[in-house]
Design a protein around this nucleic acid. Structure first.
Lengths: 176, 176
DNA sequence: ATAATAAAATACCAGGCAGTACGTAAATAT
DNA sequence: ATATTTACGTACTGCCTGGTATTTTATTAT
């Protein structure tokens, strides 16, 4: 997971992972079945270890501004996300994934859109979000913009600039 | 160029290109020196064949709304961009590029930010763009958002959805 | 027509990849 | 204590990669 996190999953070979983990290759194959199984397992672990933080931010049910601030901070400033996000890295190279990993990526993607949409809908009912935008469209938009920010971080861009871009993009939620 | 355009440059081998172009491998090496030289040459050709259209849109000096509409249409609806943009594909996998191609990518990137910024500055002077945003920051923002849209197209997302996302993102230019 | 030269392709190189056959060592069963 | 099973790593497979040495083909000079 750490290797996939620091580098691009597409650039890390099974051989390299075995060396890093000090595990024999057959041991890895016995445990995970193959590269697809390993990546799927990594993604599952990453989801419950890291992505859960994002869902937790939404679950607080805080006012829109606070929530967006927290998301912006987590995405563009949190030190542990300095090399980007495993989920979004895999999503960016979706066509290279095996079937198991790909399916899991799509599940998480859909789940994230949904979680954002539900949160926004709740804020709309709370009178906190005044927009004619369908919540589902806004949820999709959030997922994409956060993905862009993580891609920028993974590319080594200045966190301040990543933050600028993301904050600008999120202005669209308050409009229309 | 067509191969890099349809697929991800990182997924197209020199061997595959030689087969597609019906050219022997040494012939390709004589002409371009290597993979880096080939990609750089492709990028140059692509710039004068396709990217020029974007710069041409800006050069018209049309009102902001018209220009943004044209950019949105070109990015999210133009049929020839259905598989994304060679430049942005290379930029997305920058760490995998050779030195020549990488340098050219960075030049084009900087040039694009500049062209957008200059255009916006001109529209500000024309009283057409009322924003406190520094033009350079807005230029960077535009480059990133167009990149996101092309990445979505390359991933096969519904053009209508790509358009939605990009149009939402561009609202940020009118705000603040 | 033949010899020298230039151009171009075949066939190869080392290295890395995902994945596995197989021999060996450890643990369990009798 | 011995036989059987289970776990495990070495060493290998076939394949593909970017890049090139060598041979063959075409052209030019004599």
């Amino acid at each position: 997971m750490r290797a996939y996190w620091k580098d691009d999953p597409a650039d890390i070979s099974i051989n390299a992972i075995c060396a890093l983990a000090e595990v024999s290759k057959p041991a890895l194959y016995r445990a995970f079945g193959g590269e697809d199984g390993l990546m799927r397992a990594v993604l599952d672990r990453y989801a419950e270890l890291v992505l859960v933080d994002i869902f937790e931010i939404l679950a607080r049910g805080a006012p829109l501004k606070d929530t967006l601030d927290a998301l912006v901070h987590f995405t563009s400033e949190d030190a542990k996300m300095a090399t980007g996000c495993v989920f979004y890295k895999m999503r960016a190279g979706k066509h290279r994934l095996g079937p198991q990993t790909r399916e899991r990526v799509e599940e998480i993607d859909a789940g994230a859109v949904n979680a954002f949409a539900s949160y926004l809908e709740a804020r709309r009912n709370a009178g906190d979000w005044n927009s004619e935008l369908p919540a589902s469209k806004a949820g999709r938009y959030l997922v994409e913009q956060i993905g862009l920010a993580f891609a920028q971080r993974a590319a080594g861009e200045d966190p301040a600039q990543v933050k600028d871009t993301l904050e600008m993009a999120l202005l669209a939620l308050e409009r229309k």
